[in-house]
Each structure stands twice: as structure tokens, then as C-alpha cells.
Design a protein around this nucleic acid. Structure first.
Lengths: 206, 206
DNA sequence: ATATTATTCAAACGATCGTTTGGTTTCCCG
DNA sequence: CGGGAAACCAAACGATCGTTTGAATAATAT
């Protein structure tokens, strides 16, 4: 990720993704980050303005595409005659599954996503809400039709918890490396199916 | 938690639990912590030696009891003629559910537990592994009998991920407060059942 | 080739962190 | 009551953090 044929900005983004996944946002220092990226310490502030904004850009680089995939999948699901809760959840999870299987940092980014859920950083939540809140809003609306017995507050609470647990479960925080990439893909796909069923049960509960 | 009839050590532990849950271990500063506990800044180092050791003691205060409950429940399950995977998972989750329903900080501590999973702090992991690793080891042995097709490495990996997701899902990180305590208890119990089924499916997958 | 802009760099700044110090107060037992 | 241990407190220490500075270098355009 710090190969010389990447630009300074790209090397910083790559190192940031890696170190944010490993140490969290506050835990990753700009000194270790810039050393990993093989750039000068001041390069982060020069190219991104601040560490906070670097965090934003790490998310933007991946979330624009992930959100688009999720909304596409949701639109296809809602076009069906009788969409199920599992269909909607699949539209939410499957794009993240694809991202986690991506070879160039996608899996690392899913771990960063899980960090974002765990660290209840107010500033970051505001950024994500302002830029990608409409995605969760559309999914919440789709869920709401399937779950008329839940009021808005209760639904949002459940989506928040479930989305966090789903993301965490997909994030693969374990220390042990898996053996074969092929077996990993199969495992993740099956895990995603189980996650969908678990989340559907959690949403359907009275 | 900072009532004057609590001792200084207890006030510090209570404030630490609260602030660790809200801001994480690195994110909670001793200055805010001691201000919340209404004690002097130096009191933490006087009574606990260091911030790291304070983190340890926050866990020890709750985990001794939680681990004992889990091992008791596991022993009862293994005494049955045909224990199922769900039985073993229930022995792991149910004590945590009881803790999360505890009125005096138990729910807050479950959020701290979820933090511990998300922050991959090496020092903290070592402390937890040394002091409570035998609990996970006994559960892993019980799982292993039910899941002979999984080798040790794969089993530990799955337990790590699943335990993290379970803990996170139980941690109730959502901002929205629930309305009635009674409805919360019912909701959590049902959520625990769903979690058990989800985790069992994840463990049983090839 | 020269002027202008963009980028990189070593060094320092101010703020905040956990921790330590030395003195004061409080408590308790002989 | 008196004396020694325990507890508390304000203040300072050293380290590390994100950020800024101003000069040196590289790249680009006229």
C-alpha cells in the first residue's frame, strides 16, 4: 500500500485504513501513520487538512460505492411483488460481503467500519449521518412496511444494534489467519446467510 | 455512582465504568474521570497504581462473578444426558444477560465488555486471557465435542468472532433510551434466544 | 530559461495526557 | 491525647499528540 507508484494521498489513505483497523481512530498516531506510508509527518495536514478529515476521506473512498450498491440492491428487492424481510437484509449485507472479499483493502475497511460502530465518536457519527444517512433512511422505510407493529423509535434502535452486530461479525477481528481464500469466501457467504436470519428474527420480535 | 457514602475506590470504579463505556479506554481521560468521581486527580494512581491497572480492576469487579456463573451453568449443562450446542451457548449468554439487566451498573459494564472486543488492546487481552482464559477454554472444549469437524484453530476463530458479535449485540450501544424496564427485559431475553440460534448456526457451518 | 505553483521536509509549538512529588489533612489505635 | 499510618490535595514533570511554520525542492506553465 506504500508502493512508490501510489501517490502520496493514496499511500496515506492506505496506511490510515490499515492503522485505523488495527488501533482505532484515536489510537493510531499520525507519526506511526506517516512512517508506514513513507511520507513526511506534515503531509497529512497538507493533503487532508486534519486528522479528522482524513478519517472522513477514508470512509468516503469506500462508502460512496458501498452505499450505491446497497441502494441498487434495495431498489431491485422492492421491485419484487412480495419482498421479504430477508430480502431487504440481504440487500444491506450482500454488498458489504462483496466488499469484505475485495482483495485491495476491502476486508480491512470492513474492520474500520466495525470500529466506527464501537467508537461512538460524535463527530464521525455526524459525518456518516450527513453523508450516508439517507441510505439507512431508505432501508428503515423498507423495514417499516414489513414491520408495522414497530414504531419509528423502536425500529431505529433495533436497526442500529443489528447493523452494528452484523458489521462486527463480518469484520473478522480474530487474530488467527484463515488458511485458504476459497474456504474463506464460502465461510463468509454462509455466515452472511446466518446473519440475515438472525437479524430478521431480531427485527420480527414483538 | 459518586454518592458520598461510596468509598473513593468505589467512586473511581463507578466513574471509570461509565466513562470507559462512553469514550473507550484510551478516550477516557483521568482528569474527566476523577472530576466525575469527585476525587483528586492523583487518587487513581494512589489507589490503583496506574490507569492500566484501573482498567483491569474494572473488569475484575464484574468478571469474577460473571465467569463463575458461566462455569456453573456450563457444568449443569454438561451434566445433562444429551447437551446441545444451544445449551452450551445459553450457558455462555444467559449469565451475561442477567448482568445486563442488573440495576447497578451491570448494563454499563456489558458495554465496556463490548469495547474490549473492539479495541484490540494487547495488554488488556493478555490480562483477560490470563485471568479468565480458562473460562473460554472450558467452553471451547465443550463446543469441540459437539463440533468434531472443526479443528482447534478454526473453532477458536469462530468463538472469538461470535463471542464478540454476541457481546456487541447485547451491549445496547444505541443512543435511544427504551421506554419501560419491563419491556426491556422481555426484549433482551428474546434477543438472547435469537443470538443463541444465530451463533449455533454459525458454529455448525462446515 | 524563468516565474509560478505545488509538494516535501525538519523543526518547533501548544495542548493534553498519565504520572510523580511533597506537603497537608484525616483517621485510628495505643 | 498523641503519634504514626493512610488518605487527600495542588502543582509540576516528562512524554506524546495533532498541528503549524518557513525554508528547500520538484513540477508546471509561459
Amino acid at each position: 500500500m506504500n508502493s512508490p507508484h501510489f501517490s502520496t494521498k493514496e499511500r496515506i489513505l492506505g496506511a490510515a485504513e490499515e492503522l485505523f483497523a488495527r488501533h482505532g481512530f484515536a489510537g493510531a498516531s499520525l507519526r506511526e501513520l506517516t512512517a508506514t506510508a513513507k511520507v513526511n509527518l506534515a503531509a497529512v495536514n497538507y493533503h487532508f487538512g486534519s486528522k479528522d478529515n482524513l478519517v472522513n476521506e477514508v470512509f468516503r473512498r469506500r462508502l460512496d460505492e458501498l452505499s450505491a450498491h446497497r441502494l441498487d440492491a434495495l431498489q431491485q428487492v422492492l421491485a419484487k411483488p412480495q419482498p421479504t424481510l430477508e430480502d431487504i437484509l440481504s440487500a444491506f449485507i450482500h454488498p458489504a460481503l462483496l466488499l469484505s472479499l475485495d482483495k485491495s483493502g476491502g476486508a480491512t475497511f470492513v474492520r474500520v467500519l466495525a470500529r466506527a460502530y464501537a467508537e461512538h465518536n460524535e463527530r464521525l457519527r455526524k459525518f456518516l449521518s450527513e453523508n450516508y444517512g439517507h441510505v439507512l433512511k431508505e432501508f428503515a422505510a423498507a423495514f417499516s412496511i414489513q414491520l408495522p407493529h414497530l414504531d419509528k423509535e423502536e425500529l431505529y434502535w433495533r436497526i442500529d444494534i443489528i447493523a452494528g452486530a452484523l458489521t462486527y461479525a463480518m469484520a473478522d477481528f480474530g487474530v488467527i489467519k484463515r488458511r485458504a481464500a476459497m474456504s474463506e469466501k464460502i465461510h463468509r457467504e454462509r455466515a452472511a446467510e446466518h446473519l440475515i436470519r438472525f437479524a430478521a428474527a431480531g427485527l420480527r420480535a414483538d
